[in-house]
């Protein structure tokens, strides 16, 4: 969090933009069906976890805020070619809006533990931000949007948890390998 109020350098803007572009590109991959549940899962929210873990709280959060802006502008960058203001009135809008917060949380946790990061820690951080925080915003939103009770919405959302867990595991494994190649990633120049 210490870097949160420092000014945004050119390098920061480039990282923010490139990870937003990466997250958008992940939406182009065809969805895969998660074993056991069968609900199609896209790689896109892995972009959110990766942005937080690799860029830190500020840059990760801002790059997901950029995704929200790009969707609002009308670009079809969400998985399945969704985009435009219509997305913000659908039942899943809360999950999209949770991404900046979730990425910032994942980023803050990774920044603190960057020198001693291991797959288990990284997974826990991604789980906290990418699932706990994200669902804490997305589920109440869906509940208001659909008129269903919180309990009903939460039960329905459970179907997506296995897919998100899988993404948290993959992110954690990727983060640890990337740290070996780019050890100074969180030292904002």
């Amino acid at each position: 969090m210490s870097t949160f109020f420092t000014r945004t350098t050119t390098k920061d803007v480039v990282y923010i933009a490139l990870f937003a572009a990466l997250t958008a590109a992940l939406g182009l991959f065809p969805p895969i069906a998660v074993p056991l549940v069968g609900i199609p899962v896209t790689a896109q929210s892995m972009g959110m976890m990766l942005a937080g873990a690799l860029l830190g709280a500020k840059r990760g959060g801002l790059s997901m805020l950029l995704i929200v802006l790009l969707v609002a502008i009308g670009l079809p960058i969400l998985s399945g070619g969704r985009g435009g203001l219509g997305v913000f009135f659908g039942p899943t809008a809360g999950f999209l809006l949770s991404w900046p917060v979730a990425a910032a949380v994942i980023g803050a946790l990774h920044e603190r533990a960057w020198t001693t990061i291991n797959p288990v820690k990284s997974f826990l951080f991604c789980f906290l931000g990418g699932i706990v925080v994200s669902y804490a915003i997305g589920v109440p939103w869906a509940s208001v949007n659909t008129g269903l009770s919180l309990m009903e919405t939460a039960t329905g959302s459970l179907a997506f948890v296995p897919g998100d867990m899988l993404k948290a595991v993959l992110t954690a494994l990727a983060v640890v390998s990337i740290r070996r190649a780019f050890p100074g990633l969180h030292q904002t120049a």
Partner: peptide, 18 residues
Amino acid sequence: AFAISLSLRFLPVIAGLA
């Protein structure tokens, strides 16, 4: 605005990389 145009510029590049 610069971040928006940068990400628009590099979306096709990164999609190509992928």
